[in-house]
Simulated scan of single mutants.
Amino acid sequence: MAVATSMQNREIAQKLREVALLLDEQGANRFRIQAYRTAADRLDHLAVPVSRMLQEQGTEGLQTLPGIGVSLARSIHTLVVTGRLPMLDRLRGQMDSIPLLTSIPGVGSALAHRLHEDLQIDTLEQLEMAAHDGRLADIEGVGPKKLQGIIDSLTARLGRLRRPLHTAGPASTGEPSVEELLDVDRDYRESSRTGTLQHIAPHRFNPGKEAWLPILHTHRGARHYTALFSNSALAHQLKKTRDWVILYYDDGQGESQCTVVTGRSAPFAGKRIIRGREADCASYYHSLASSPAVGDSESQA
């Protein structure tokens, strides 16, 4: 497994503590905060370099350390391999995935922007999933040779970090239900309107460094959620920065994300829908058809 950086244990621990600090400031679950602090303490007292452990044992080796589960092990691996932690960038307001995507040979700036805007790809793991499930092949300019080169580069970079590559759909991947996702989306938008959330200052499209972007940390069962309005170029262009909501969720096995938007045409006009899961949304709203009052609560005024 390739390890690309020379980041020392202390540096990694410092970044994990910064995650914990920002989660604390932004009102996240105290158990999640403590998990990052505990992991930082473990790495501070680790007798061997994390990079060597990953080289020899993969993320499974990290999981033998008390307090470090699958998700944290993957985050540490990402930090060691890429020098960056997408979650930390997000908490800082530095949500720019373009430099990370362009670090893969064959992915230039134009392609990276299309991947981010069209496929909502922010991480190398998400890029790998898209490369294997056919979405990347559908992008203009990605032929078979380039696709294979990207896959080979990701294999070398991610090594044993890779999660099982499911392509069947929500039922087989363990994705949260539409009802759960829309509940978090509603929670975020209502809390944003009432002004009860912490705000961060995104670095992109924010020359005045205004702390305008509300951030929500919450959980549903074992899943931890972070919710943010989209700060993408397309959201600004279409004036959807107060409509499109990005939900990041971690089930203990790694982080995923989805985007919730307001439908503009039938059968979803005025209703909140999850991009890429329109069929599931249709089934969900159909099940509510006999309860108009409940169904209306899912719509956005």
Rank of each mutant, 00 (worst) to 15 (best):
M1F: 09
L16P: 00
R17V: 00
E18V: 00
L22N: 04
E25V: 00
E25A: 03
E25W: 09
A28Q: 08
A28N: 06
R30P: 02
Y36Q: 06
A39K: 10
A40C: 09
D41I: 04
V48H: 14
E60R: 13
T64V: 01
L65Y: 10
I68A: 10
L72A: 10
R74L: 10
R74P: 03
R74D: 06
T78N: 14
L79N: 04
G83D: 06
R84M: 03
L85F: 10
L91D: 03
M95T: 09
I104Y: 09
V107P: 02
G108E: 08
A112D: 04
L115P: 01
H116S: 11
T123N: 11
L127R: 02
D133Q: 06
R135V: 00
K145T: 05
G149W: 08
G149H: 05
I150R: 02
S153T: 00
A156R: 11
R157Q: 08
R157V: 01
G159I: 03
R160W: 14
L165N: 11
H166N: 11
A168Q: 12
A168T: 01
S172P: 00
S177D: 12
D183G: 10
Y188M: 03
S192M: 04
G195C: 11
H199A: 14
I200F: 03
F205T: 05
P207Y: 15
E210N: 15
A211V: 04
A211N: 13
I215K: 04
T218L: 14
Y225C: 07
T226N: 03
L228D: 01
L228Q: 05
T241K: 15
V245L: 08
L247C: 06
E255F: 14
S256V: 04
T259S: 08
G263H: 08
R264A: 14
I273A: 10
G276M: 07
R277N: 05
S283A: 15
S291F: 12
V294P: 04
V294F: 07
E298F: 15
